[in-house]
């Protein structure tokens, strides 16, 4: 007698009317030009439409891997996570929202901290993910950004952040607001230490994240057509009761108004960052 036995030899046949070819998950429709994009191809082009160059929002894990040389990096501060100091309840308690965000995004918080080499330079990178509660900044995100900057100061390395955020996290109230002051103070120290900070803005970057670290880069780069601003477009429309101009609060709009340095296609981004690091990382201290 065999140890294992099939419970049933019968293969259940699928009724004819339920038989279909599964294409779901193979093709993605471009948000802008409607083209059907082969999913694997889209991944290879870093989530940029090969027909119209539309930049899809990109998950933080893929971006971290792409950023570092040969995808070699060490994740940091993953243990820093959110609490519920306000005991905030809207339609759902905040801890429930956090749990759900962790599950759906596969991330511990709205930002990933990592260290590694970029173009051979030592870099501490903070990469945000809009899928985690809209990339909002609460105490944990503020603490992680601060730790990133402090490590860079200790080890005389560069900081790069990729912003993707709706702003400060409402569920942590004024504590979230204070994170803006906290990360900006840390950047004051990084600045005094004459260390590089490159800030990359992706779709969307608004509110408290824009009004703190995202706009404080030595160099500020934005992805094409990203929404970047302080107040959200809906709030502005309601306040001034008029239609907003075309292109308003896009990367290109900010570039035109002198608020950012360059707009760069994601597929060209890494060489640009490396060129900037080559300029900024200067170990020659003979003048001091």
């Amino acid at each position: 007698m065999s140890w294992f036995r099939k419970k049933s030899n019968r293969i259940e046949s699928v009724p004819a009317n339920e038989r279909r070819v599964k294409t779901e998950g193979i093709f993605v429709k471009c948000t802008k030009c409607d083209a059907a994009l082969y999913k694997r191809e889209l991944e290879e082009s870093l989530q940029v439409c090969i027909h119209c160059d539309f930049h899809f929002r990109w998950d933080a894990r893929s971006r971290v891997c792409w950023l570092f040389d040969d995808c070699r990096y060490e994740e940091l501060d993953a243990e820093v996570t959110s609490l519920d100091p306000l005991e905030f309840v809207d339609t759902k308690p905040y801890p429930e929202r956090l749990e759900r965000a962790k599950k759906t995004s596969g991330l511990p918080e709205a930002i990933i901290n990592a260290r590694g080499k970029v173009g051979g330079h030592d870099v501490f990178a903070g990469v945000m993910d809009f899928n985690f509660l809209g990339g909002s900044m609460g105490s944990a995100v503020g603490e992680k950004v601060t730790r990133l900057i402090e490590r860079a100061i200790d080890e005389r390395a560069a900081v790069i952040t990729f912003a993707a955020s709706g702003g400060a996290r409402m569920q942590e109230g004024t504590l979230s607001l204070m994170q803006m002051a906290k990360v900006s103070a840390a950047l004051a120290q990084l600045d005094s230490a004459k260390l590089p900070f490159i800030s990359v803005l992706t779709d969307p970057t608004t509110g408290g994240v824009t009004a703190s670290f995202a706009m404080l880069g030595d160099v500020i780069i934005a992805e094409p057509r990203a929404l970047v601003g302080f107040a959200g477009p809906r709030v502005i429309e309601q306040t001034i009761r008029q239609k907003l101009p075309e292109n308003f609060q896009t990367s290109e709009f900010l570039l035109e108004h002198g608020m950012i340095d360059i707009v760069v296609d994601r597929r060209e981004m890494r060489p640009h960052i490396i060129k900037l690091l080559n300029f900024m990382v200067n170990n020659n201290e003979s003048d001091e």
């Binding site: 504590l175 204070m178 994170q179 906290k182 120290q189």
Partner: peptide, 13 residues
């Protein structure tokens, strides 16, 4: 002042 700003927030680690 820096130390005060540094300590703002409540998180778990």
């Amino acid at each position: 002042r820096f130390k005060k700003l540094r300590e703002l927030g409540r998180w778990s680690e």
